[in-house]
Design a protein around this nucleic acid. Structure first.
Lengths: 160, 160
DNA sequence: AATACAATGTTATAACATTGCATTTCTTAT
DNA sequence: ATAAGAAATGCAATGTTATAACATTGTATT
């Protein structure tokens, strides 16, 4: 700090997400992992795409800042973010989304709209525990915190 | 029919599934669709792979009988079977499975084992109705009868 | 300086899926 | 029976998604 004059904040560009990114970075630190520049940039792009992004779209966007970026660049970043619980992959759509519930470690439901491909992350303790019990009764064990469901989103339900 | 002597049944080759295939064919007929030879063969291959099979593995198998088969051959057949509710796609694994509950139209849970990639189809009315209610409360509507879940299968749970 | 290790760069290729168009086969109305 | 139209298939090319394999860089420790 070189002055008593408070710095003007970075202009709140539509979607800077600085606070969330800083939180994510801190969370990684506490786990001994590091949210490097690339990873942070990818995560920011995810934050800006609330309904999910394709890997190669991410690649195209990242290339604007890093012309040398290649598929492994983003797939590695995505793998890291998923490992850290900061992002999820929607298998049926090959879509990646930022996790909106990073703080808690409860399994999430991902509602994938078959009309608009939008993804909504939902947490429903009651559903998940019913689910978990049924699986256990059948000898299975719920492992990953990701349950994918096709469900029309409110907008598409309305646009009948 | 040309005789009073009853035909000897086709030898019950491990996995002929003739009865199920005939049922499927009849079901298609009632819907005005037709389970052609190719589609029937693909469905039979699905029946023989209870834990799911990849599209290009199907292709390789089909090629033994039909050397000219190409990717569209199987993807078209798979699309048809899925439309008819005779098969499902497991998005996260790019895996296709025959439907084991073709008779009823209740949504199914697909348990995908992250260790062995095995797929189990499960029907749990209680879970599904809890789910359906929660979604409705959030303004969504359950659309497709396919819910994918990562869960260790009983074998892999045991093999700790 | 030498080593160790995580992250990234680079090139190539594997794996999965669709498009477009030509041809054949199956219905069905006449 | 047969022509018209629809459905299914053959086939080549291409598009999309993801990983393998190996080299390089940066940084921290010894």
């Amino acid at each position: 700090m070189n002055s008593s004059i408070p710095d003007i904040q970075c202009p709140p560009t539509a979607g800077s997400h600085t606070a969330a990114l800083d939180l994510a970075e801190a969370a990684c630190r506490t786990r001994g992992a590091s949210l490097t520049a690339i990873r942070r940039e990818v995560l920011e792009l995810l934050y800006r795409s609330p309904t999910g992004v394709k890997a190669y779209d991410l690649l195209a966007q990242i290339k604007e800042a890093r012309p040398g970026a290649s598929p492994p660049t983003i797939y590695r970043a995505l793998d890291f973010l998923i490992e850290q619980g900061l992002a999820h992959k929607i298998g049926r759509m090959n879509l990646f989304v930022a996790c909106r519930h990073a703080s808690h470690q409860i399994p999430s439901l991902f509602l994938v709209c078959p009309k608009c491909s939008g993804v909504t992350e939902l947490q429903e303790q009651s559903v998940m525990s019913a689910l978990s019990n049924s699986l256990a009764a059948a000898g299975h064990r719920l492992e990953s915190p990701e349950v994918e469901i096709s469900a029309l989103c409110p907008m598409c339900v309305g646009a009948r």
